[in-house]
């Protein structure tokens, strides 16, 4: 089976990179391929990279409230392009209320600050299979 390709990115002006780096390392250790988009991305840039790189999953690290607006925007862009690449969101600022809103809008999984590594990896493996481009 081909390796799962996960795109990891941070949105807008959010400069907190530690979580994204740690999660990237974790995914690589779990045998996945990580496309690291780093800081300073807008939804359109994430979309373009997802297309170019053929990512199976989009992982967004969120440590500022900007994700509340950018994640729904990205979901819309994916819908427009008829892409069903699942989005996984994780970060320190995500409250239980935010998690409900995001999953309601179509985010595949949301992880708060206390999520365990195994749980994150298993979830990504499970949902990666469902994401079929086109």
């Amino acid at each position: 089976m081909d390796k799962i390709r996960v795109l990891i990115g941070i949105l807008g002006m959010d400069q907190h990179e530690v979580g994204a780096i740690a999660v990237s390392r974790m995914f690589r250790d779990a045998g996945m391929e990580v496309i690291y988009a780093g800081r300073f991305n807008l939804p359109a840039m994430i979309l373009q990279m997802t297309l170019e790189e053929g990512a199976d999953v989009i992982g967004l690290s969120c440590h500022s409230w900007e994700y509340l607006y950018y994640v729904p925007e990205l979901l819309e862009l994916l819908k427009e392009k008829k892409l069903s690449v699942p989005i996984v969101v994780g970060g320190s600022v995500i409250t239980p209320g935010d998690a409900d809103v995001l999953t309601g809008k179509g985010v595949a999984a949301v992880f708060g600050p206390s999520a365990e590594a195994d749980e994150i990896i298993e979830t990504v493996k499970r949902i990666a299979g469902k994401g079929i481009a086109g």
């Binding site: 807008g12 002006m13 959010d14 500022s64 409230w65 900007e66 607006y69 950018y70």
Partner: peptide, 22 residues
Amino acid sequence: DSPTMACLDPDHPFAVNAIGTQ
């Protein structure tokens, strides 16, 4: 806020959702 700290004006496309929040 984070755009101000980065020397970006609020009308910069990257600033939109971070204006005045932090």
